[in-house]
């Protein structure tokens, strides 16, 4: 299934976990639990040592995963070992994409990602201006390149991003770094408003932590929700308390279900969507 198709049947729930957090085997179970909980797309983090766009929750996940031995090569094995059928998006920083393989540049990484069944990428430190070579490699191998649109993104910048984006656009709900929040930002509504005229699914992320958040964001027009830190918190807590992987997986599935249900409830509250052309 393509990324865009994953958004065609009701609102999409897009959870994120760092691959290999806190260890390879448990992480496989956790990601599979997300699908059971109703995930429509899964964003899998490949940890980079300098995650400049992440808040403390995901920074710590990155540290756990790296200490558990995660590398780009192991990441591709991880994707092959995963038993999920929903599309997978790889979220990582550009240096790991750039350095993979024998030739510098993004092509070998993208080729390998396509081979193991990844559908697309989100690269938080790669703005549209520098994305040419990665976009080209994605086109060559038929992968999507998701871009982040921030509350500060307007005018020409927005056009430039929307020319290059495919799959879905990641709408950053508020300024700052990733991390669960207890309220939904007003910045979300105005960001969605700026994007109404663009014909690509809009998934809102940064700070969504429960079903009510999910409901409100979908009700205000999002085509999907992206949730990372709230799920990573469950992994972190389980790791600290020494809980067994099955218990942690059940908790992830429960929160996933709540978020998915919230998104569906939100969709029923909004006015009929104008026909997409």
């Amino acid at each position: 299934m393509s990324l865009e198709d994953a958004f065609s049947d009701g609102p999409a729930f897009v959870p994120y976990l760092a691959a290999g957090d806190p260890d390879y085997e448990s992480s496989l179970e956790y990601v599979e639990a997300l699908e059971r909980g109703g995930a429509d797309v899964i964003e899998l983090g490949l940890p980079f040592s300098e995650p400049i766009a992440e808040g403390p929750t995901i920074q710590n996940a990155v540290v756990r995963s790296l200490e558990g031995g995660m590398t780009p090569t192991r990441f591709f094995e991880f994707v092959e070992d995963l038993d999920v059928s929903v599309p997978l998006v790889c979220m990582t920083y550009y240096n790991l994409i750039y350095r993979y393989g024998d030739e510098p540049g993004p092509r070998p990484f993208v080729e390998k990602a396509a081979e193991v069944g990844i559908e697309g990428f989100v690269v938080p430190d790669l703005p549209a201006e520098e994305a040419g070579p990665l976009r080209e490699a994605c086109d060559e191998f038929g992968l999507d390149l998701v871009f982040i649109v921030a509350p500060t993104t307007r005018g020409e910048r927005l056009d430039r991003i929307m020319e290059q984006v495919s799959g879905y656009v990641y709408v950053q709900a508020r300024l700052g770094t990733t991390g669960a929040q207890s309220s939904v930002s007003d910045q979300t509504d105005s960001s969605l408003e700026r994007l109404t005229d663009y014909d690509v699914p809009k998934a809102v992320g940064f700070g969504i932590s429960d079903g009510d958040h999910a409901e409100r964001i979908v009700a205000s027009g999002a085509d999907g929700i992206i949730v990372g830190s709230a799920l990573v918190d469950i992994v972190a807590e389980g790791h600290e308390n020494g809980d067994d992987a099955e218990t942690v997986a059940d908790r992830l599935e429960t929160l996933a279900r709540e978020l998915e249900d919230g998104a569906v409830a939100g969709a029923s509250q909004r006015p009929p969507h104008p026909e997409r052309t």
Binding site: I52, A53, Y94, P124, D125, L126, P127, E129, E130, F147, I148, V149, A150, P151, T152, T153, R154, R157, I161, Q172, L175, G176
Partner: peptide, 14 residues
């Protein structure tokens, strides 16, 4: 060189 930064920073950098 170049500008490899999160999108949220790009308007400030411009």
């Amino acid at each position: 060189g170049g500008q490899y930064v999160p999108e949220a920073l790009m308007p400030a950098i411009e």
